[in-house]
């Protein structure tokens, strides 16, 4: 079981993730709507895994990864990407993200990625 922080600006996406993870025994310890909030929550909650949307208002996902990695180099962040965002995913991986999942997601994929990290 992992403690997960979900960072996404769309409530719908957060809900989807929460459902998938929740019913498979993971615990959603917090949610954030943008990068800045995500960084703040990370410091407060110290989750095992963070799911991070890329395109978000104010501080985007890549920037948030950089900030979190600066605070905790061991942080496990999974990017949530849409099709066609290859370049940005790569950038996020360079910045320290561990893995990624692609929207629209399949339950099995999300679980595979999260469980691999724990």
């Amino acid at each position: 079981m992992a403690k997960v922080l979900v960072v996404d600006d769309a409530a719908f996406m957060r809900m989807m993730l929460k459902n998938i993870l929740g019913k498979n025994g993971h615990q959603i310890v917090g949610e954030a709507q943008n990068g800045a909030e995500g960084v703040k929550k990370y410091q407060e909650l110290k989750p095992d895994v963070v799911t991070m949307d890329i395109i978000m208002p104010e501080v985007n996902g890549i920037e948030a990864v950089r900030q979190i990695m600066a605070i905790d180099p061991e942080a496990k962040i999974v990017m949530v990407s849409a099709l066609g965002q290859e370049a940005m995913v790569k950038e996020a991986l360079e910045a320290g993200a561990r893995d990624f999942i692609v929207k629209p997601f399949k339950e099995s994929k999300v679980l595979e990625v999260i469980e691999k990290l724990c």
Binding site: S81, L83, L93, F100, V102, K109
Partner: peptide, 15 residues
């Protein structure tokens, strides 16, 4: 089979 961002996966393997 259903891997979508193939290039990024390849990139990760390379890395």
């Amino acid at each position: 089979k259903d891997c979508t961002l193939k290039s990024v996966r390849a990139y990760m393997a390379f890395r």
